[in-house]
Amino acid sequence: MRTIAASIAARVPRFLREPRSLLIAVPYFWLFLFFAIPFLIVLKISFAEAQIAMPPFSSILEWTGEKLSINLNLGNFQFLFEDELYYTAYLNSIRIAFNATLLCLLIGYPMAYVIARMPPSRRNVFLMLVILPSWTSFLIRIYAWIGILKNEGLLNETLKTLGLIDAPLHILHTEAALYIGIVYAYLPFMVLPLYSNLVKLDPRLLEAATDLGARPWQAFLQVTLPLSRAGMLAGSMLVFIPAVGEFVIPELLGGAGTLMIGKVLWQEFFNNRDWPVASAVAIVMLLLLTIPIMLFHHYQARELEAR
């Protein structure tokens, strides 16, 4: 009996025998369904040619009687290098995302730090306050900023009533408004990982630093800051990566002068009806984003080894 059971068990694939790997399969399946498949579709379109048809691109696989031929059109990628528009837009997106991430870090770090230092009963209230705005639709919150920042908006009217300005400050549809929008929208993504990192920090380490003669700021710089690096990095990734591809905030708050890659993608897709070039733009953006993600993984792996 035992041998039969053993031989059956041997025939069952290993991942079915181990419930743990089955559990791991769930996120992989998720990734496959919602990342790999859409990515492959976009990749396929990026090698096609635009045409007036439904759908508006050529098929890259062709069955001609007996032969199956694959027509890969590399022209779409080549095209991205021929016009400085794409280069400028990628660079702009990365620059804006980088600055916004830095701002989020500068604002988010003190917030996370203060919340982590609070007595546990009050922490939840303040964490709640960080998360609470996300319960309203993202779009409505960005629209609210239009109401605040516009020439006859809340901010300008208040400053005028206080007598601080005569003419309205022109903020809406400038890069400043764009930064306000991005920092506002993504700040929780910076605060939360930082908080969960800082709250785990052993207070005895700081006591030890004080005992050894470190002043509070020295203890912060030499103990707290290095130990919270993983949190800073995680938060920065969560802000930087979606900010690069951001479309709604620049569209609603940003000015015409700042071209980000999200807008270029929109134009390729909608104005030019060139789905293949739009797909190529998306693929290149993804490749650009994998660099910081790989750095992040590399760093995390090292961090884990060090423990």
């Binding site: 048809a53 439904m54 759908p55 508006p56 897709f269 909608f270 104005n271 009806r273």
Partner: peptide, 8 residues
Amino acid sequence: EVLEAKLL
């Protein structure tokens, strides 16, 4: 443009 993308 949005209508056209949907139709295509």
